[in-house]
Lab assay of single mutants.
Amino acid sequence: MEVRTIKVFTTVDNINLHTQVVDMSMTYGQQFGPTYLDGADVTKIKPHNSHEGKTFYVLPNDDTLRVEAFEYYHTTDPSFLGRYMSALNHTKKWKYPQVNGLTSIKWADNNCYLATALLTLQQIELKFNPPALQDAYYRARAGEAANFCALILAYCNKTVGELGDVRETMSYLFQHANLDSCKRVLNVVCKTCGQQQTTLKGVEAVMYMGTLSYEQFKKGVQIPCTCGKQATKYLVQQESPFVMMSAPPAQYELKHGTFTCASEYTGNYQCGHYKHITSKETLYCIDGALLTKSSEYKGPITDVFYKENSYTTTIK
C-alpha cells in the first residue's frame, strides 16, 4: 500500500517557510505537534488534498525554529505562539472599519479597549522592536488589523473576551517599542525636605499616572512627601515624541487643539466601556464603527496623549 502524501510549508514567522512532505494517514499533531492554519487549530486533523502548498504555523520545537521565533517575536515564552494563534482565530472574524481616516474595530468580545489602543497607536510616533509587531502594525494602518490585535493580546497575556485596560495595554506595548531616546527629568520640591531631581528613561519617561493635564504637570502637581507634608512635583525636561497622561476616570474637559487623542471610560472596574476622542479640525468621538463630532467635550476621561518633541522648564 502506497503512502499518500502532500507537500506543505511549516513556519513560526510566515517569513521562513520549511518544506514538509506530510503523510495523509496521520494527523498534523502526530507529525508536527500543535499546528495552526489561519489561526485555526488543526492539530487533530489529517492532511487533505486542499492543504497542498498551504502554510501551517507550528510551535518552535527545534533550534532553527526557536531562533526564527525569537528573532521575529522577541520572546522565548513557549506558550506565546499558541496564544497568538488562538487569538487570531477570533480577531480574523472582527470587522476593521476605516473611521475618520483611522483603522478602528467594530465592537465584539469586549474589544473596546483594543480599538482605543489601536486608534491611539496610529496617532503617536512609535516604532516597535519585534519585527512581528512592526509588520502587523503597518498592515493594521492599511486596514488589516487582525494579526496586530492578536499579537497585542498575546504580548499582554490576554484572551479574547476578557476586559482590558488601555493604560495597561499601552504599557505592555511600550515595553516592546523603541523608547531608548526618551528621557524625563522631574523635580520634587518640599518646604521641609528641599528639592530632589529624578531622571527617568524609556517607558517611565512617557507615562504618568495622577493627572490628565500635561500643562498642569509642567506647572506642578501636589504629591505627598515622605515627611508627610505636601510637596510639588513638576516637569523639568521632556525628550520624547509623545507623552501619555493618565488618571482614574473623572469628568474632564478636553479643549480642541490642546491634545492629540484621549480615552474615555464609562462604567466601573468590573464592567465598563471605552471610547476614543481625537482632536482634528474639530473633536471626534470614535466608538467602534461609530463616529460623532463636537466642538467641545466633557466626560469621564482616563488617558490623554500629547505630541511632544523637546521641553525644558522655565521655572527657576
Rank of each mutant, 00 (worst) to 15 (best):
148 F>D: 02
52 E>C: 11
165 D>T: 01
105 I>F: 02
187 N>R: 14
308 E>Y: 04
134 Q>M: 09
212 L>P: 02
239 E>I: 13
148 F>A: 03
312 T>P: 09
195 Q>L: 13
230 Q>D: 10
267 G>T: 11
105 I>K: 04
181 S>C: 12
269 Y>S: 15
90 H>M: 12
295 S>R: 14
219 K>V: 10
289 A>F: 06
63 D>R: 08
12 V>K: 07
296 E>A: 15
287 D>G: 00
173 L>C: 07
99 V>C: 11
126 L>R: 04
295 S>A: 14
132 A>F: 05
247 A>G: 08
236 V>G: 01
242 F>S: 00
175 Q>R: 11
88 L>R: 04
39 G>M: 09
214 Y>S: 01
225 C>M: 00
281 E>I: 02
181 S>V: 07
52 E>W: 11
11 T>C: 05
280 K>D: 10
138 Y>L: 15
5 T>R: 13
276 H>W: 09
44 K>R: 13
63 D>P: 08
208 Y>M: 09
240 S>V: 01
12 V>P: 07
290 L>M: 13
90 H>Y: 13
210 G>K: 01
170 M>D: 03
102 L>D: 05
176 H>W: 15
232 T>A: 05
286 I>H: 03
263 S>N: 14
256 H>G: 11
232 T>G: 00
65 L>Y: 09
168 E>Q: 14
142 A>G: 11
49 N>R: 13
248 P>Y: 14
292 T>I: 08
190 C>A: 01
88 L>K: 06
94 W>C: 03
72 Y>L: 08
262 A>F: 00
102 L>Y: 08
55 T>A: 12
158 K>H: 03
299 G>P: 02
183 K>G: 04
62 D>S: 15
12 V>L: 07
69 A>G: 06
53 G>N: 15
269 Y>A: 15
28 Y>L: 12
308 E>G: 07
184 R>A: 15
307 K>I: 10
117 A>K: 02
61 N>P: 06
80 F>H: 03
297 Y>V: 05
178 N>F: 04
315 I>D: 15
214 Y>L: 13
267 G>I: 07
70 F>A: 11
170 M>W: 04
313 T>K: 14
297 Y>F: 11
312 T>H: 11
62 D>R: 08
208 Y>A: 11
90 H>Q: 14
112 C>D: 05
142 A>R: 13
39 G>P: 04
37 L>Q: 13
272 G>Q: 03
200 L>H: 14
182 C>H: 01
174 F>I: 01
249 P>D: 02
